[in-house]
Design a protein around this nucleic acid. Structure first.
Length: 858
RNA sequence: GCGAGGAUGGCGGAACUGGCAGACGCGCUGGGCUUAGAACCCAGUGGGUAACACCGUAGGGGUUCGACUCCCCUUCCUCGCACCA
């Protein structure tokens, strides 16, 4: 008889039953501690890919494990449904973004269901529904009231030939992704969220995020970019004012020999006015205007600039410093003006060399002597001050403080702190997003949409061509409205919000997804939030997580929430990777378009040898993708899940391997077969701590208890599912070596062990486990079962294998009864013939690692 | 350039606080079953040797009775930020 686990019969059976019984529905239960498991919700792009499968499998395992540990679980799923791809689909295929999005949602939802994820689908949300974005618009208005939302002129990428705004990701190497023409910069009035109002809190609370990966916290800190320094005033030579700079190196002030300004610096027109340099300067400024940030980066770091014709005075040395415009100075950071210290800053050094500007050394290292003439590069390390008047001889870190004191005393400058973090621009000149609830009236100016008129619904009848500005501007029924204040004619804001706004609070909405009286039901939120375990890709380590943290703080300060941080624990899972094949003639090839011959690979079309690419992230363009649907069809969901968990620990990248998948399927079959071999001999009610006389039976029980311990410690405490699974594999292998027998004690022990396997595998392979669980005579789903407990005493070995080292080298192994004392063991070991050969010249020292190892030093 | 992480068999990966390196899986080899194959089961599998010895965690040095693990230097790889003054 062939015994085979058939996923195509068994898996649909359980899907149906789980759905009918709604076992994953979550409700407040104050008798249990709650646990909120959340995976980053997907963008409904069409169908799920392996990255989703891995992410959601990890989340599902966490949810099931925590449930089995006794928590009341909430495990929701939804759709980050607004975004650019929907609009692109409209442009390419003429499908309405809404239709495209909802169809994708339906399809992807069926895919997720098929994989057996334990979502409470009653809580499903899609951010493109007015019931959702209504509350986003409300919060926008509250932020406006608080001054946390404001409007200012800001630049966008603009394509002249398509006549449209481009998102950053639509700019490829400074060119438009559609037509390839040069991208320009255009200034538009845009909305911003004042995230900088929370800079300090976002930074200091980083240290409270103890459940986050170190790496992500560091990225957040770097993104915020706090630096301590001074603002220093440099008087203009003609006495007409001064230029303020920001520097973190006030210790090098005596070495500042010229001044560099950003091309956008407001003083420039005045500085060059009437000078012979004026024309050249204005031309340079004009040229810089049309450079995007992307293009600036492509400028290959060539430092360049022009002299303005004016000078300012170094306040401590009295030197006349020429004022330059320099392309590397950023208007957005500091004051847009930099004091140039060529001897101690790499960029200033290059600039000084190029334009032949003076270099003065003011920091000397201890071990060598620098001189301005022979300097080949800037010296940016620490050292002692020279050429710095009364500060000579000070260590530069000390001098920073002394010079800052001096500047403050004399009123020449003051200590300041600067941050890299800028406010969050949220205006998008796009259709498929949440409309910004603002009305412009000729008489009353800018008027917020009254709360009672929310939501401002995104109109359906819109023509999306990919041309022009915001598509909403072409919908007169939307644009034209009446002013809520005066009742006169008015126009709506035609921009939509950045999709990061929707994802900044969806995790709160999940607590009460159908609530109609407000953004959320406070009682539900107080119970479920914050998220206990958040799981997703590291690509969101900065923006999404930072914006979500910001949102929670804003809502807290609006009195709506009473917690400070959204995500207690964060797991960033690795990517799913695969080799790629590239033919010189036919570009990237699918694996089936490649022929293998003696370990080399050839293109089936042209028979030329193909380049086997590094294992890298699966992507359509590289043709190194596998479709989860195919895998479910071939192996079933359990196998696919198991592979995602077994091939690597969750935070590492996962290398795709078809053979590895087959191995996981084999393991499932092995459990299935093991069960069926023993089925007639299994004994129903067994408990694991019975005292058995049979040695083999006792060993089986011990092995089972050890396995429970390992699975709990690896899976639950460390989320290392790969080693947890391998522990179960070892137990299965062990049981395969037990001969089928009528011995009652062995049958009891095996029954216990098999039961543990079924329970322990449930979070990983729920279908298989449910089926076996039912076969074992259980009526209720495993979902309600508790994790097994192990007895420490039951894991203790009766016989210990003691490793004996002589001078740190392994020279023998002794199987000794665990009941012996160290002294008794020592006597037995030293009496051994082989060991005594080593010890005949006398023993210096004996070091014991209890129950494991002894090192004899001779 | 700065910051972080990493390098272990033919491959993916174990070894948690320093204590048997290579668990588990894949692949490979041999055997069993079979008319044959697939599937399955058993055994072996870092290098080296007839067997020991010995050599092995990127390379070099150090601390220690003992180092994949701790410290210093070097090389390479991955990721993040990237003209932030």
């Amino acid at each position: 008889m062939e015994v085979r686990y058939n996923p195509h019969e068994i898996e649909p059976k359980w899907l149906k039953r789980w759905e009918e019984e709604k076992i994953y529905r979550s409700e407040i239960d104050r008798s249990k501690p709650k646990y909120y498991v959340l995976e980053m919700f997907p963008y409904p792009s069409g169908k799920i890919h392996m990255g989703h499968v891995r992410n959601y499998t990890i989340g599902d395992v966490v949810a099931r494990l925590k449930k089995m540990e006794g928590y009341n679980i909430i495990h929701p799923m939804g759709w980050d449904a607004f975004g650019l791809p929907a609009e692109n689909a409209a442009i390419d295929k003429g499908v309405h973004p809404a239709k495209w999005t909802y169809e994708n949602i339906n399809f992807m939802k069926s895919q997720l269901k098929r994989l057996g994820f334990s979502y409470d689908w009653d809580r499903e949300i899609a951010t493109c529904r007015p019931e959702y974005y209504k509350w986003e618009q409300l919060i926008f208005l509250k932020m406006l009231e608080k001054g946390l939302a404001y409007k200012k002129r800001s630049s966008v990428n603009w394509c002249n030939s398509c006549n449209t705004v481009l998102a950053n990701e639509q700019v490829e190497g400074g060119e438009c992704w559609r037509c390839g023409s040069r991208v320009e910069i255009k200034e538009l009035e845009q909305w911003f969220f004042k995230i900088t109002a929370y800079t300090e809190e976002l930074l200091s609370y980083c240290d409270k995020l103890t459940g986050w990966p170190e790496k992500v916290i560091l990225m957040q800190k770097n993104w915020i970019g706090k630096s301590y320094g001074c603002e220093i005033k440099f008087p203009l030579e003609d006495g007409s004012g001064h230029i303020t700079v920001f520097t973190t190196r006030q210790d090098t002030l005596f070495g500042a020999t010229f001044m560099s300004l950003a091309p956008e610096h407001p003083l420039i027109p005045e500085l060059c006015k009437g000078k012979k340099e004026e024309e050249a300067v204005l031309k340079y400024v004009e040229k810089s205007k049309n450079l995007t940030a992307v293009q600036r980066q492509m400028a290959e770091y060539e430092k360049e600039g022009v002299f303005t014709g004016s000078y300012c005075i170094n306040p401590v040395t009295g030197w006349k410093m020429p004022i330059y415009i320099a392309n590397f100075v950023l208007m957005e950071y500091g004051t847009g003006a930099v004091m140039a210290v060529p001897a101690h800053d790499e960029r200033d050094f290059q600039f000084a060399k190029k334009y032949n500007l003076p270099i003065v050394v003011v920091i000397q290292p201890k071990e060598r002597q620098l001189s301005a003439e022979s300097l080949a590069e800037a010296y940016t390390e620490q050292g002692y001050l020279v050429n710095s008047g009364e500060f000579n001889g000070l260590f530069n870190e000390e001098a920073k403080e002394k010079i800052a004191d001096y500047l403050e005393d004399k009123g020449l400058g003051k200590r300041t702190i600067n941050y890299r973090l800028r406010d969050w621009g949220i205006s998008r000149q796009r259709y498929w997003g949440a409309p910004i609830p603002i009305i412009y009236c000729d008489k009353c100016g800018m008027v917020p949409v009254p709360e009672k008129d929310l939501p401002v619904v995104l109109p359906e009848n819109v023509n999306i061509t990919g041309k022009g500005g915001s598509p909403l501007a072409d919908v007169p029924e939307f644009v034209n409205t009446v002013c809520p204040r005066c009742g006169g004619k008015a126009r709506r804001d035609t921009d939509t919000m950045d999709t990061f706004v929707e994802s900044s609070w969806y995790f709160i909405r999940f607590a009460s997804p159908r609530y109609e009286q407000g953004m959320f039901n406070k009682e539900e939120v107080d119970y479920w939030l914050p998220v206990d375990q958040y799981i997703g890709g590291v690509e969101h380590a900065i923006l999404h997580l930072l914006y979500s943290r910001f949102y929670v703080k804003v809502l807290r300060d609006l009195g709506m929430l009473n917690f400070d941080e959204p995500f207690i624990n964060l797991l960033t899972q690795g990517m799913v990777c695969m080799e790629s094949y590239k033919c010189n003639e036919h570009n990237y090839l699918f694996p089936e378009e490649v022929l293998e011959r003696d370990g080399r690979f050839f293109c089936k079309k042209c028979d030329k040898e193909v380049l086997v690419g590094r294992v890298e992230k699966m992507s359509k363009s590289k043709k190194n993708v596998v479709d989860p649907d195919d895998l479910v069809k071939n192996y079933g969901a359990d196998t696919l899940r198991l592979f995602c968990l077994f091939a690597a620990p969750p935070e590492k990248d996962l290398d795709w391997s078809e053979r590895g998948v087959e191995g996981c399927n084999r393991f499932i079959q092995r459990i299935w077969r093991l069960y069926h071999q023993w089925e007639p001999k299994l004994i129903q009610s067994v408990n694991g701590d019975e005292i058995l006389d049979n040695r083999i039976a006792r060993d089986i029980l011990r092995m089972a208890h050890k396995t429970i311990k390992r699975v709990i410690e690896d899976a639950l405490k460390r989320f290392h599912f790969n080693t947890a699974i391998s522990a179960v594999m070892e137990l299965v292998n062990y049981l395969y070596n037990i001969e089928l027998t009528e011995d009652i004690e062995i049958r009891k022990a095996v029954s216990f062990a098999i039961k543990q396997i079924v329970i322990l595998m449930y979070p990983f392979t729920p279908f298989l486990s449910e089926e076996l669980w039912e076969k074992m005579g259980n009526k209720r789903s495993l979902f309600y079962e508790k994790l097994p407990t192990y007895k420490e005493a039951m894991t203790a070995d009766e016989v210990l294998t003691i490793v004996v080292q002589i001078n740190g080298k392994v020279r023998g192994r002794f199987d000794l009864s665990a009941s012996l004392s160290e002294n008794e063991m020592e006597r037995l070991i030293l009496a051994d013939e082989k060991i005594s050969q080593y010890t005949k010249d006398g023993i210096k020292k004996i070091i014991w690692v209890p129950k494991k190892l002894v090192n004899i030093i001779v």
